[in-house]
Amino acid sequence: MTETCTTSGGRRAPLPPAGEEAPRPAAVPAPRPGGAPASKAGAQAKPRDAFFDNAKYLAIVLVAMGHAWEPLRDGSRAAAALYITVYAFHMPAFIIISGYFSRSFDMRKDRLQRLITGIAVPYILFEVAYTLFKRWADEDPGYSISLTDPWYLTWFLLALFVWRLTTPLWKIVRWPLPLALTIAVLASVSPDIGDELDLQRVLQFLPFFVLGLCLKPRHFKLVRNKRARIAAVPVFACALVFAYWAAPRMNAAWFYHRDSAQELAAPWWSGAVMTLAMFGCSMVLVACFFAWIPGRTMWCTALGAGTLYGYLLHGFLAKGSRFWGWYDTYGWMHTPWGAVLLTLIAGTVVTLLCTPPVQRMFRFAMEPKMTWAFKKDPVGMARGRN
């Protein structure tokens, strides 16, 4: 892994949970004297990389499965071990991909517009929607809307908005990753940060985003080979064994990165130790996860374009199952076969929520064009007339 950020553009792909930034369109070569372009290759858009779409889809499936396992942890040590293992790498994987596809972000007008319509607007809409849902489903009419205190899954959109805005800064510093790790460590020992803007998560997850900014295609190729895939098997096996041992002994809140060490009833210095140790463990597991991701186009590849939809929409069902007491009412959910069935249901539901019909239905909220909200670009208009 490198500590110097690249400024080259990534391939075009949709926004979160992998939060990708659209690259600058390839320049069309100047016409020859006869009026024909010198080459048509520059005007052709780069194809999508199936590897990243597959990675995003499988990661969002793990997110949904993790939410399904959460209420089972108290009664099942195996469920707790799976939960801890998945939470150690699934969000870091998303964030690294988000950073990788943010490499081309600058303060250009079209990219700022995309930042607003693809991240800020969905954040506002779903923060309001989740709040209203909580009032109704949890019978909590006093719960108020707060755009500065994100609830449940919306924290990721707010964090991605902040990270994306800081991208130009990370491109100019000499050692971006060590600096980001230092900020994360300081945040983990600072209980006075509070809950505003979910800054603890923004700062503690920051190193993964900065790492994504610093990666190049060749770094992903290092883990996309047969030897890496074989090595990932014992590594994940050891992780599961350790998680099974640690489940009754460790506070799983460490994996959320939303609290300081003092808020987790731990000594302040443990925040620094845990931040660095968990970053290292997460990176090993993320590398193993990427090693298993197929690079060819598969039936699920197209679903990688809809991970934002699956991410935000499945949250209503995940929270509703708690509000309505499904895990307390239906005892079969706490049996081994019930846990397996819940896992399959979670994977199926989030898969359906990533499909094109759902994308078309909710595109008004996830990817609004909002041309009416922005001033027209006089330079672009002049080019269009010419």
Rank of each mutant, 00 (worst) to 15 (best):
G19A: 10
L197C: 05
L341A: 15
A26C: 10
L58F: 15
A318F: 00
P356L: 09
V86R: 00
G325Y: 04
W292T: 14
Y87E: 14
T117N: 09
A231T: 15
A339S: 00
L58S: 12
F205G: 04
M381C: 09
P207T: 12
L186C: 13
M370G: 04
P29I: 04
W292H: 11
P217R: 04
R114H: 12
G9C: 12
Y123P: 05
W136L: 11
K46N: 03
R201V: 10
F94I: 13
L213P: 08
G35P: 05
W254N: 00
M283D: 13
T371H: 15
I183G: 06
W372Y: 11
L222W: 06
R322K: 11
R360Y: 11
R135Q: 10
L313D: 12
F316N: 07
G75W: 01
F101E: 06
V349W: 05
A187H: 01
P37C: 03
A18L: 05
H219P: 05
A291Y: 09
S146R: 09
R383G: 01
Q359R: 11
Q204D: 00
G304N: 09
I84P: 02
A159I: 14
F126S: 06
Y244I: 04
M274G: 03
L165G: 04
G142H: 09
F51Q: 04
P378C: 09
P31A: 03
